[in-house]
Write a protein that binds this DNA or RNA. Sequence first.
DNA 1: TTTTCATGTATCATATGAAGTTACATGAGA
DNA 2: TCTCATGTAACTTCATATGATACATGAAAA
Lengths: 125, 125
Amino acid sequence: MTSGELATCMGTNPVVVRRTMAGLREAGFVRSEKGHGGGWEIACDLSAVTLRDIYDALGAPTLLAIGVHIESPSCLVEQAVNRALTPAFAEAEALLISRLGTVTLAALADDFRRNTAAHRIRKEE
Amino acid sequence: MTSGELATCMGTNPVVVRRTMAGLREAGFVRSEKGHGGGWEIACDLSAVTLRDIYDALGAPTLLAIGVHIESPSCLVEQAVNRALTPAFAEAEALLISRLGTVTLAALADDFRRNTAAHRIRKEE
DNA sequence: TTTTCATGTATCATATGAAGTTACATGAGA
DNA sequence: TCTCATGTAACTTCATATGATACATGAAAA
């Protein structure tokens, strides 16, 4: 598929698609071809890649909305709060990341297909 | 302390302080007095109030940066991802909230005082 | 060889929401 | 009655994610 087609599917912009796919390409999960007949194709075993891998390929962005932003804040109150909560933040993030590691793209695809079939049956009724 | 003094301490604005403190006042954790000699004072037992209570009083804002935003997305792929990750998000959030419940304001204050003492000794050296 | 169509990427524009600001009403004490 | 505080509405930045534009590069088709 081309970036334009993907963008239409996702309701976004071809350039945004390229920006995001760039990370997946660098990780080797997809390939891109320029020119006529070009576009994107999957380049990995879907059962060997997890959402954890995707997460890492996209730059491991922050998962928590709150947390320790400044390493050594000058505010002593902020320091006390950080001491109290840093382990909790770390554990929650680790939990999330480990859960991402349990979801393969193949599992997602299977679930998607099952639901698409159900969707089709429902529409035919 | 007045909103202005608190704002100076926190490097922010008196109105922002009032906006935030309003939640704590409604929960009964602080009291405010208008007029001459007015300002804010603590109105709770610090050992009986946890960061969980503060979190709730401030409107229980989102703790996770990612997660399910649309309840029933039309995108079947998004639906599959949601089915795969919703429990993980819920668990991570529950973990964080339960940890907030283990930190009392009194514990924070104690830790703050210990560190302030150490800070003072370090400066006197 | 030239045209067409795709990616790659820098740069700019826009939208969204948090934070900050201003303005003014209200209330309490000096 | 004057001063000083909170309570709030309304407005203004500000930061950042997203979208858009422009153009260079590369590959296949005409």
